[in-house]
Amino acid sequence: MTAQRVCALSELEQDSAIRVEVDGVAIAVVMDSAGDVHAIGDTCTHGDISLAEGFVDGDSLECWAHGSAFSLSTGKPLNLPAYEPVPVFAVTIDGDDVLIDPAVTKPTS
């Protein structure tokens, strides 16, 4: 599988997230406060909640329902009630295109 265009970079706003789906995989595409773009699994591991509807705080994305925050770089939960990480996907920026390959995850070490 190859990386697919999921949105335009100009569609993203700082400190916000959007939900996209690539080959049946729900992904939250996030622009953090530094302007860096991240892609993590969109479903909170504590409940079946879209993380893209949550809150971006620095380098984390917080689930609006129960408050678990996930690291945008590792996918690891930063607080309870979630204790399982979400996948983190490699992002490529090509001009104004944001590309993601849902088959390529970044290591979470």
Rank of each mutant, 00 (worst) to 15 (best):
V88H: 06
V6G: 13
A3Y: 05
C63E: 04
H38F: 14
V104C: 03
L12Q: 04
R19T: 12
S33Y: 12
D96G: 04
A82H: 06
D32Q: 09
S60W: 04
V30R: 08
K76P: 09
A82V: 10
A34E: 15
G35A: 01
E21K: 12
W64I: 07
G75M: 00
C44W: 06
G54S: 07
V6P: 12
D15E: 14
D96I: 04
V88T: 06
V91Q: 10
D59P: 00
C44H: 06
T74N: 12
G24K: 13
I40G: 07
R19G: 14
K106D: 00
L12V: 05
G54Y: 03
L99G: 07
V29F: 09
D57I: 14
D23F: 08
A8M: 12
V88K: 06
D97K: 12
A65F: 14
D32I: 09
G54A: 05
E62D: 03
L61V: 05
N79V: 15
L78R: 01
R5S: 07
A69E: 13
W64G: 10
D59W: 01
G35W: 00
V29H: 11
D42I: 11
G67C: 10
W64S: 12
H46D: 13
P85G: 08
A69S: 15
I40K: 08
L12H: 04
V98W: 03
S60K: 08
V29T: 11
V88F: 05
I18V: 15
V88R: 07
K106T: 02
S73G: 09
I40P: 08
T92E: 15
R19E: 14
V91R: 11
A8F: 12
V22K: 07
D59S: 02
K106A: 01
V37T: 04
K76R: 11
L61F: 03
G67V: 07
F55C: 14
A69L: 10
C63K: 09
E11K: 13
D96Y: 06
A26W: 04
E11D: 15
V56N: 00
T108I: 10
H66D: 02
D42L: 10
S68R: 04
D36K: 08
G75V: 01
S60P: 09
V30T: 10
P102S: 06
A8D: 15
P77R: 00
T45Q: 12
D42S: 13
D48K: 11
P107V: 06
T45R: 13
D101A: 15
E84D: 15
D97M: 06
I40R: 07
T92N: 15
T43F: 02
G35F: 00
G47S: 09
A65D: 14
L12D: 03
D32H: 08
N79T: 13
M1H: 08
S109K: 01
R5L: 05
G41W: 02
P87L: 12
T108F: 11
T105V: 14
P102Q: 04
A34P: 11
V22A: 04
S10V: 08
F70T: 00
H66E: 02
H66Q: 02
D59N: 01
D36T: 10
G24V: 12
I49G: 02
L72I: 02
A103C: 03
G47V: 03
I100R: 09
Q4T: 05
T105F: 11
V20I: 03
P77H: 00
D15Q: 11
P102A: 09
L80H: 08
D97A: 13
L9V: 05
R5N: 07
E53C: 10
M31A: 06
L61C: 04
E53R: 12
P107W: 09
P107G: 08
